[in-house]
Protein backbone atom coordinates (compact mmCIF):
# COMPACT_ATOMS: atom_id res chain seq x y z
CA UNK A 1 0.00 0.00 0.00
CA UNK A 2 1.45 3.31 -1.04
CA UNK A 3 0.03 6.60 0.17
CA UNK A 4 1.22 9.85 -1.32
CA UNK A 5 0.72 13.20 0.36
CA UNK A 6 0.56 16.17 -1.98
CA UNK A 7 1.16 19.69 -0.74
CA UNK A 8 -0.46 21.78 -3.44
CA UNK A 9 1.37 25.06 -3.02
CA UNK A 10 4.78 26.35 -3.99
CA UNK A 11 4.74 29.11 -1.37
CA UNK A 12 4.52 28.96 2.40
CA UNK A 13 4.92 26.05 4.76
CA UNK A 14 1.56 25.45 6.48
CA UNK A 15 0.06 23.08 3.94
CA UNK A 16 3.24 21.00 3.81
CA UNK A 17 3.32 20.87 7.61
CA UNK A 18 -0.30 19.70 7.76
CA UNK A 19 0.19 17.02 5.09
CA UNK A 20 3.38 15.89 6.82
CA UNK A 21 1.49 15.61 10.10
CA UNK A 22 -0.91 13.16 8.46
CA UNK A 23 1.88 11.13 6.85
CA UNK A 24 4.05 11.03 9.99
CA UNK A 25 1.17 9.70 12.04
CA UNK A 26 0.40 7.05 9.43
CA UNK A 27 4.04 5.98 9.32
CA UNK A 28 4.21 5.75 13.10
CA UNK A 29 1.06 3.64 13.36
CA UNK A 30 1.48 1.33 10.39
CA UNK A 31 4.74 -0.36 9.42
CA UNK A 32 3.43 -2.16 6.35
CA UNK A 33 2.69 0.92 4.28
CA UNK A 34 4.82 3.21 2.20
CA UNK A 35 4.25 6.95 2.44
CA UNK A 36 5.78 9.76 0.44
CA UNK A 37 5.40 13.52 0.42
CA UNK A 38 5.24 15.45 -2.82
CA UNK A 39 5.72 19.10 -1.97
CA UNK A 40 5.08 21.06 -5.16
CA UNK A 41 7.54 23.67 -3.93
CA UNK A 42 10.35 21.13 -4.37
CA UNK A 43 9.67 20.59 -8.08
CA UNK A 44 9.67 22.69 -11.23
CA UNK A 45 6.51 21.65 -13.02
CA UNK A 46 5.66 22.93 -16.49
CA UNK A 47 2.20 24.16 -17.36
CA UNK A 48 -0.10 21.50 -18.71
CA UNK A 49 -0.23 21.87 -22.50
CA UNK A 50 -2.62 19.05 -23.27
CA UNK A 51 -0.04 16.49 -24.42
CA UNK A 52 -0.24 12.87 -23.29
CA UNK A 53 0.83 12.55 -19.65
CA UNK A 54 3.58 10.07 -20.64
CA UNK A 55 5.30 12.65 -22.84
CA UNK A 56 6.35 15.07 -20.13
CA UNK A 57 9.99 15.14 -19.01
CA UNK A 58 12.09 16.19 -16.02
CA UNK A 59 10.43 17.09 -12.72
CA UNK A 60 7.02 17.02 -14.34
CA UNK A 61 7.53 13.40 -15.38
CA UNK A 62 8.93 12.49 -11.96
CA UNK A 63 5.87 13.86 -10.16
CA UNK A 64 3.37 12.32 -12.59
CA UNK A 65 5.06 8.89 -12.30
CA UNK A 66 5.06 9.05 -8.51
CA UNK A 67 1.37 9.93 -8.43
CA UNK A 68 0.43 7.21 -10.93
CA UNK A 69 2.07 4.59 -8.71
CA UNK A 70 0.16 5.24 -5.48
CA UNK A 71 -2.96 3.58 -4.06
CA UNK A 72 -4.25 6.47 -1.99
CA UNK A 73 -3.62 10.17 -1.52
CA UNK A 74 -3.78 12.95 1.00
CA UNK A 75 -4.18 16.17 -0.97
CA UNK A 76 -3.45 19.34 0.96
CA UNK A 77 -4.20 22.80 -0.37
CA UNK A 78 -3.97 26.37 0.84
CA UNK A 79 -6.83 28.71 0.01
CA UNK A 80 -5.90 31.49 -2.44
CA UNK A 81 -8.60 34.01 -3.39
CA UNK A 82 -11.31 31.74 -2.01
CA UNK A 83 -10.18 28.90 -4.25
CA UNK A 84 -7.51 26.23 -4.75
CA UNK A 85 -4.14 27.51 -6.01
CA UNK A 86 -3.32 27.40 -9.70
CA UNK A 87 -0.32 25.19 -8.94
CA UNK A 88 -2.56 22.41 -7.64
CA UNK A 89 -5.02 22.77 -10.51
CA UNK A 90 -2.10 22.62 -12.95
CA UNK A 91 -0.90 19.40 -11.34
CA UNK A 92 -4.38 17.90 -11.77
CA UNK A 93 -4.42 19.14 -15.37
CA UNK A 94 -1.13 17.32 -16.04
CA UNK A 95 -2.62 13.98 -14.99
CA UNK A 96 -4.83 11.73 -17.12
CA UNK A 97 -8.48 12.21 -16.24
CA UNK A 98 -8.92 8.70 -14.83
CA UNK A 99 -5.84 8.88 -12.61
CA UNK A 100 -7.81 8.49 -9.38
CA UNK A 101 -10.07 5.68 -10.61
CA UNK A 102 -10.36 3.07 -7.85
CA UNK A 103 -8.15 5.16 -5.60
CA UNK A 104 -8.97 6.87 -2.33
CA UNK A 105 -8.34 10.56 -1.76
CA UNK A 106 -8.41 12.35 1.59
CA UNK A 107 -8.28 16.16 1.63
CA UNK A 108 -7.14 18.93 3.90
CA UNK A 109 -6.93 22.70 3.59
CA UNK A 110 -5.06 25.45 5.37
CA UNK A 111 -6.45 28.96 5.44
CA UNK A 112 -6.66 32.22 7.33
CA UNK A 113 -10.15 31.64 8.71
CA UNK A 114 -12.84 28.98 8.57
CA UNK A 115 -14.91 31.28 6.35
CA UNK A 116 -13.46 29.48 3.36
CA UNK A 117 -14.24 26.02 4.70
CA UNK A 118 -16.60 25.19 1.82
CA UNK A 119 -13.99 25.80 -0.90
CA UNK A 120 -12.98 22.12 -0.78
CA UNK A 121 -16.58 20.95 -0.84
CA UNK A 122 -17.44 23.05 -3.85
CA UNK A 123 -14.21 23.20 -5.82
CA UNK A 124 -11.78 20.39 -5.03
CA UNK A 125 -14.33 17.60 -4.54
CA UNK A 126 -16.03 18.03 -7.95
CA UNK A 127 -12.67 18.00 -9.78
CA UNK A 128 -11.46 14.89 -7.96
CA UNK A 129 -14.81 13.16 -8.45
CA UNK A 130 -14.58 13.88 -12.16
CA UNK A 131 -11.13 12.28 -12.13
CA UNK A 132 -12.61 9.10 -10.68
CA UNK A 133 -11.56 9.47 -7.05
CA UNK A 134 -13.38 7.88 -4.16
CA UNK A 135 -13.29 10.62 -1.57
CA UNK A 136 -13.02 10.42 2.17
CA UNK A 137 -16.21 12.37 2.95
CA UNK A 138 -14.85 14.47 5.81
CA UNK A 139 -11.92 16.77 5.17
CA UNK A 140 -9.90 18.82 7.65
CA UNK A 141 -9.59 22.60 7.54
CA UNK A 142 -6.62 23.88 9.54
CA UNK A 143 -6.94 27.53 10.49
CA UNK A 144 -3.94 29.81 10.74
CA UNK A 145 -4.37 30.12 14.51
CA UNK A 146 -3.58 26.39 14.87
CA UNK A 147 0.03 27.00 13.80
CA UNK A 148 2.89 28.23 15.94
CA UNK A 149 6.62 28.09 15.19
CA UNK A 150 6.09 25.93 12.10
CA UNK A 151 4.06 23.31 13.96
CA UNK A 152 0.40 22.56 14.60
CA UNK A 153 -0.34 23.27 18.24
CA UNK A 154 -4.05 22.41 18.34
CA UNK A 155 -4.45 18.86 19.70
CA UNK A 156 -7.97 18.45 18.37
CA UNK A 157 -6.81 19.36 14.87
CA UNK A 158 -3.94 16.87 15.18
CA UNK A 159 -6.47 14.19 16.14
CA UNK A 160 -8.62 15.07 13.13
CA UNK A 161 -5.56 14.91 10.86
CA UNK A 162 -4.64 11.49 12.28
CA UNK A 163 -8.20 10.30 11.67
CA UNK A 164 -8.07 11.61 8.11
CA UNK A 165 -4.96 9.51 7.48
CA UNK A 166 -6.50 6.42 9.06
CA UNK A 167 -9.80 6.82 7.21
CA UNK A 168 -7.92 7.15 3.93
CA UNK A 169 -5.83 4.05 4.66
CA UNK A 170 -8.80 1.94 5.78
CA UNK A 171 -10.91 2.94 2.80
CA UNK A 172 -7.99 2.09 0.49
CA UNK A 173 -7.57 -1.30 2.17
CA UNK A 174 -11.30 -2.01 1.91
CA UNK A 175 -11.32 -0.98 -1.74
CA UNK A 176 -8.46 -3.42 -2.45
CA UNK A 177 -10.53 -6.24 -0.94
CA UNK A 178 -13.54 -5.27 -3.03
CA UNK A 179 -11.43 -5.21 -6.17
CA UNK A 180 -10.06 -8.66 -5.34
CA UNK A 181 -13.56 -10.08 -4.86
CA UNK A 182 -14.73 -8.53 -8.08
CA UNK A 183 -11.76 -9.91 -9.99
CA UNK A 184 -12.24 -13.43 -8.66
CA UNK A 185 -15.93 -13.30 -9.54
CA UNK A 186 -15.02 -12.19 -13.07
CA UNK A 187 -17.26 -9.24 -12.62
CA UNK A 188 -14.57 -6.80 -13.30
Amino acid sequence: MKIIGISGSIVGTKTRIAVEAVLDKLKAQHTNIEVELINLGDYQLVFSDGRDYRDYTGDTKTVIDKIMSADAYIIGTPIFQASIPGTLKNLLDLLPNTVFKNKIVGMLATGGTARHYLVLEQQLKPILSYMGAMLVPKYVFVEEKCFQNKAIIDDEVLLRLAKLGNDTLHMAAALKEIMKTQESAHLY
Partner: peptide, 11 residues
Amino acid sequence: GSPSHMLAMDY
Protein backbone atom coordinates in the same frame (compact mmCIF):
# COMPACT_ATOMS: atom_id res chain seq x y z
CA GLY B 1 -23.87 28.86 13.51
CA SER B 2 -20.19 29.11 12.55
CA PRO B 3 -18.01 30.90 10.02
CA SER B 4 -17.44 27.59 8.19
CA HIS B 5 -20.52 27.88 6.04
CA MET B 6 -20.10 31.47 4.90
CA LEU B 7 -19.61 30.36 1.30
CA ALA B 8 -23.07 28.73 1.26
CA MET B 9 -24.09 32.19 0.08
CA ASP B 10 -21.77 32.06 -2.95
CA TYR B 11 -22.31 28.39 -3.72
